[in-house]
Amino acid sequence: MNTVFLLAPRRPAVMLAALALLAALLPAPVQAHRINIFAWLEGDSVMVECGFNRSSPVRSGLITVFDDANGKELLQGHTDDKGHFSFPVPPAARAGHGLRIQIAAGEGHRNEWIMDASEFSGADAPAASPMEKAEGAGSARDTAAPSAPAQTQAGRPATADDVRAIVNAALDAKLGPIRRDLAAQVNAGPGLRDIIGGIGWILGLAGMGLYFRGRRG
């Protein structure tokens, strides 16, 4: 069995070992030189986070928000020292249009994030038919939790809007960590698999070139 390995040419083995070593050393300093952007809805404002990677935020990068439906520019602003930017949900988004949020940091860096119109359906907006919603909410409350009737400070039963605000606040608090995780995932640099795959592609292409050259010559 071992003779197979002994017979194999020595130089490729050395080369592979060197590449493996290189790849093993790499993950520590791996950072994408791509600009990352991540946006989410929090209450009635849109939060944007931009970074070159997790540890280096984009400072005073230019954020431009477009209406995704008709390409109209809605607003502009700069990120703060932590790479954050937030703006109130624009009327266009309430009207059922998506948003295209673009970050430009100079030197040819640019990226964008699209927020679909459906993301804004939960935003605090005047409901189309408050009466119907209130009725629905009321009956749901009656059946689900008859022993704990939700009361506002004024003593009257909570309206649908109150319930929606409470639920939204609770969801924002609970979903915060998940959003941060998601942002970190979006902002993560290329993985080891991509790196090794790319090296494999390059060596494979060179090998194919040699093969066809050898058959012709």
Partner: peptide
């Protein structure tokens, strides 16, 4: 074409090189 493998290896080096960062104060 005898040097094709050298070209490949240097191409791989260039490919990986952009993942190694040099700290430059404010930028990367």
């Amino acid at each position: 074409y005898d040097r094709l493998m050298t070209v490949g290896i240097l191409s791989a080096a260039f490919f990986v090189g952009s993942l190694i960062h040099v700290p430059v104060g404010f930028s990367s």
